[in-house]
């Protein structure tokens, strides 16, 4: 700035003839007017830039952002509520399905049990009938066997008497055998 020789015009009470400051340049009254004038111009310019353009714009951008954020949060809240509802519905459906399945199983079990009981009863009856029949058959066979034993005993007794040289009439022998068999 001061590399070339200084005009004596500038060199006044504040600047020496070599171009360096005399004292503090801040206190040089000659320059106050200039600085104050241009400062006022600069501040007024900044004030108008800010108040007319910059601040309303930034304010609106911030407000818009705040609005967007608020809306998004509300939307998210909505979706969350919906999701919760859907989950509740799903849970309910699941519980219903479980109950239904349980009911079906119980019914099926009851049916099966009834069928089973019936089948068992029929089988029992069958078995009982068959057992009775068999009992009867056994009784008959036993009766038959007894009679046969009687006859064999009577025949044998007559044969033995005959062999011993005695004679016995059939009635006496059978009565004796009967009495002995009862005894």
């Amino acid at each position: 700035m001061a590399t070339e020789p200084i005009d004596m015009e500038i060199a006044g009470t504040c600047v020496s003839e070599f171009g360096s400051a005399i004292g503090m340049p801040q206190l040089c009254g000659e320059w106050f007017g200039n600085q104050i004038f241009w400062l006022v111009v600069a501040l007024v310019a900044i004030y108008f830039i800010l108040s007319r353009v910059a601040l309303p714009r930034i304010g609106s951008v911030l407000a818009e952002r705040q609005g967007t954020i608020t809306n998004d949060i509300a939307a998210a809240e909505d979706l969350k509520v919906k999701a919760t509802e859907a989950e509740a519905q799903y849970d309910k459906a699941l519980i219903d399905a479980r109950a239904e399945a349980h009911r079906i199983i119980t019914d099926a079990k009851a049916d099966i049990q009834a069928d089973l009981d019936q089948a068992i009863a029929v089988a029992d009856a069958d078995i009982a009938a068959k057992a009775a029949e068999s009992e009867k058959a056994i009784a008959e066979i036993r009766e038959g066997a007894k009679k046969n034993v009687e006859e064999v005993a009577k025949d044998t007794a007559q044969a033995i008497i005959a062999a011993l040289g005695g004679s016995a009439d059939a009635t006496t022998v059978s009565a004796a055998v009967d009495a002995r068999m009862k005894g």
Binding site: M1, A2, D7, E9, I10, G12, C14, V15, G19, S20, A21, G23, M24, P25, Q26, C28, E30, W31, G33, N34, Q35, I36, F37, W38, L39, V41, A42
Partner: peptide, 29 residues
């Protein structure tokens, strides 16, 4: 010359500094 940097001088050419002169102060403001 630590104070020389604070000297106010006309930005265009030389001359006296009057209230409306465009100085280095004006330019930096």
């Amino acid at each position: 010359h630590p104070m020389d940097q604070f000297i106010v001088e006309p930005f265009f050419g030389d001359g006296a500094v009057s209230w409306y002169t465009i100085t280095n102060a004006t330019v930096w403001m």
